[in-house]
Design a protein around this nucleic acid. Structure first.
Length: 507
RNA sequence: GGUCCCAUCGUCUAGUGGUUAGGACACCGGCCUCUCACGUCGGGAACGCGGGUUCGACUCCCGCUGGGAUCACCA
């Protein structure tokens, strides 16, 4: 070991743009990202779009937007065209030709039907279903000199197979799983070039990982069976394979690999459900990795502490409730101005007008953030703040808006009406501003309540619930003084009077 | 079926030969209280089984069982 020759860590995330960005998948990307950042190395984003049939630009956009939303940034990658596999076909052809020339790969003209029959036959005879290598040894001088590659439309209807070694073992020294030995006899000759002239995944990946100088391959352990094959291709190319770190899978509640059928699984889905990127990231990082008893991690902490040594080896089940709890945690602790911005699109989506006054919105959110676990929930809850007309729940009205309460509500309306209107503070929102401002207002509201309570000899509990129903339409809300402070004097008086007349008239 | 991986509360996990097996989510109670929450205090809940190794195994080894992944001209 040459201590002066420190190799910079380079990791990559290589999603294929064939669908939504899945959270199990993005977790692998996150771990690759954290490892690179922890080691002050480079994180590369590569787009595995060799499958031209299934790749879409919408899907690519979703990947890029999802990563942007999560704040997982890359040092190399899109929009740089070199990081798209579809732009590297010349390189793959060159690599395939090299192997062909050296007899490390060969042309195979077995048809799909041949292969199918082969598999069926093997199954009948209880042998393993792999390719039997019948075209493996056609290495004539002419064959080796042939520089053509498959092109079905040009009549070159064959594939190129990798000539995999048939003896020995391939050992994967995985950074997470430890040592796994694969008997080379288990490795059949995989196709590296399809008859339509397109390289296959295992081949393109190896060339990319080699060309881009990847030092560590971080991916899901569903790739573990591919690893010895990829390593053999590295060897055949005369290259040293990178280090591997295979993360355990993320399972659905049924214990099967997480997939679309488990419901919300894409990054977009959680964004639209009103989750914070901080929460999703925090949840994902703790699924398969831990740092003592710590549960809450800022991005800086994740980067600082991340280490494969602290990664678990066993698969984890995705637990939506813990994610919800984390989201709630961030709901309660994120700076209020962040919430003010984040909540706006959700208000708009409900078709409601977005209040122009951020300071007021901040006060509103301050009363709700301990009661809503997602932004969607928060906006649902904010209906009575954000709309002039409220719907009164009939059951609540029947119970609390009785004829006897009418004079009390009217009296309270008069008290509130006589309260000095608080002047609007124009200063920018400092942390805690909303709370302090609200407290000042609440004190006078409380005095107003006290006077009514005394006049009618009632307890607060007897008045608060009817008032709550009158102001919010239901029996559940933030503290009644807070609600009034946020609602403001005029709207409060109007709703109180409306309720008073409604319940005296309803008798 | 072959190959490979995995195994601590329901779930995520700490543990690295000697612990009353710790924390978190969820759940159940108490307190706080104008409702609901928040907060707070407390509670139930786990080392899959069988062999070894050892003075001593949740920890190390082997087997079993169970779960998962993978076996394409997909990635």
């Amino acid at each position: 070991m040459n201590g002066n020759n420190i190799v910079t860590v380079r990791t990559r995330y290589a999603p294929s743009p064939t669908g939504a960005l899945h959270i199990g998948n993005v977790r692998s990307g996150l771990f690759a990202y954290l490892f690179a950042r922890h080691n002050r190395g480079a994180f590369v984003l590569r787009i595995d779009d060799t499958d031209r049939e299934r790749s879409t630009s919408e899907s690519l956009d979703e990947i890029l937007e999802s990563l942007g939303w999560l704040g997982v940034d890359w040092d190399e990658g899109p929009p740089d065209a070199r990081y798209f596999q579809s732009n590297r076909f010349d390189r793959y052809r060159e690599g395939a030709l090299k192997l062909l020339r050296e007899g490390k790969a060969y042309r195979c003209d077995c048809t799909a039907a041949d292969l199918d029959a082969m598999r069926k036959q093997a199954e009948r005879e209880h042998r393993k279903p792999g390719y039997d290598g019948r075209c493996r040894d056609k290495r004539t001088a002419a064959e080796l000199a042939n520089t053509e590659l498959p092109d079905k439309r040009a009549g070159r209807d064959y594939t190129i197979r990798f000539r995999s070694p048939r003896e020995g073992v391939t050992v994967v020294d995985d950074l997470i799983k430890g040592r796994a030995a694969f008997d080379n006899r288990e490795l059949d000759d995989l196709i590296i070039f399809r008859s339509d002239g397109v390289p296959t995944y295992n081949f393109a990946t190896v060339l990319d990982d080699a060309d881009f100088g990847m030092t560590h391959i971080v991916r899901g352990d569903d790739h573990l069976p591919n690893t010895p094959r990829q390593m053999q291709i590295f060897y055949a190319l005369g290259l040293q394979p990178p280090a591997y770190a295979h993360l355990p899978m993320v399972m659905g509640p049924d214990g099967q690999k997480l997939s679309k059928r488990h419901g919300a699984t894409s990054v977009f889905a959680y964004r639209d459900l009103g989750y914070f990127p901080e929460a999703l990231l925090n949840y994902l990082v703790r699924l398969g990795w831990s740092h003592g008893d710590q549960e809450i991690f800022s991005r800086a902490e994740m980067i600082e502490f991340f280490d494969f040594a602290e990664c678990g080896k066993s698969a984890g089940i995705f637990n939506a409730e813990k994610l919800l709890w984390l989201n709630f945690h961030y709901m309660k602790t994120l700076p209020i101005e962040r919430l003010v911005e984040d909540v706006k699109p959700f208000i708009a989506r409900r078709g409601w007008k977005i209040p122009g006054d951020d300071a007021w919105l901040a006060k509103m959110i301050a009363t709700l953030r301990e009661r809503a676990k997602t932004l969607v929930e928060l906006v649902d809850f904010a209906s009575f703040y954000l709309n002039d007309e409220i719907a009164i729940d009939p059951k609540a009205a029947a119970k609390f808006l009785t004829p006897e309460i009418a004079p009390k509500l009217a009296a309270l309306a008069d008290e509130i009406k006589s309260l000095p209107a608080t002047s609007r503070v124009e200063a920018s929102i400092e942390a805690g501003f909303a709370r302090i401002s609200a407290e000042i207002v609440e004190a006078s509201i409380q005095d107003g309540f006290a006077r009514v309570l005394e006049r009618f000899a009632m307890k607060l509990g007897e008045l608060a619930q009817p008032v709550r129903v009158a102001l919010t339409g239901g029996t559940v809300s933030p503290g009644i003084y807070e609600v009034i402070a946020v609602l403001g004097r005029d709207r409060t008086v109007r709703r109180l009077r409306a309720a008073a007349s409604a319940c005296s008239g309803a008798s």
